[in-house]
């Protein structure tokens, strides 16, 4: 894990290389995170992967997060790893919700796909698209992966109902007539 000054150094160098790419940084529980501009996320990831001295060349995980009450609603989180120094760095692309910006209710947030940088991201990005409706531009095969292809809705968004059925117990039998139907 890069420590707090180390994270600031990375952020500073990134800002030199790609201005306005890093929006914020935070370091808590010994875990470092860069919050980046979604338009430049590919530049940031490529820089982190290829720059000597950084070499975060292993993508452990990629997942979506829905921070619903917060302002940039969605986050696409990249868990990067340097295996030589055993350092992990989290990169989060903060994605606003286009539906809230008046782009129509069906507008989906979009971000560049990082499959070319990290081939492992293919399934991960499909999963994020499946669950959160985040479109990855340039993804080779962006379809639903876990849910049926005809499914409507983005189930892991916070405003999507959890579904299921309420549990009915046998002692409701006399109280709720007809529950067996």
């Amino acid at each position: 894990m890069p420590d707090s000054p180390g994270l600031e150094l990375i952020a500073g160098e990134l800002r030199d290389a790609h201005p306005d790419s890093v929006l914020a940084t935070y370091h808590e529980h010994d875990q470092a995170c860069l919050i980046v501009d979604p338009e430049q996320v590919l530049d940031v990831l490529r820089w982190l992967r290829d720059t000597p001295g950084q070499r975060y060349d292993f993508l452990s995980s990629l997942h979506g997060v829905d921070y619903l009450p917060a302002a940039p609603r969605f986050g696409v989180v990249y868990e990067l790893l340097n295996r030589d120094r055993v350092e992990r760095l989290r990169v989060r692309a903060a994605l606003p919700d286009p539906a809230a910006n008046g782009d129509g209710a069906d507008a989906l947030p979009a971000i560049d796909s990082c499959v070319e940088l990290f081939p492992t991201a293919e399934f991960h990005e499909r999963e994020v698209y499946d669950f959160f409706g985040i479109v990855f531009r340039g993804h080779p095969d962006l379809r639903r992966i876990l849910l049926p292809e005809v499914y409507v809705g983005w189930p892991h968004r916070r405003d999507f109902p959890i579904g299921g059925e309420p549990v009915i117990f046998t002692h409701d039998e006399r109280i709720v007539p007809g529950w067996t139907e």
Binding site: S60, H63, V65, Y67, T120, E122
Partner: peptide, 26 residues
């Protein structure tokens, strides 16, 4: 790997498991 997002309440706001089988399938 487990990713847990806490929002201060008694329920997690997001739990994501990075499962090796999922990645290995590729």
């Amino acid at each position: 790997g487990a990713f847990v997002l806490a929002d201060g309440s008694a329920k997690p706001a997001r739990v994501h498991i990075r499962d090796p089988s999922f990645v290995h399938m590729q």
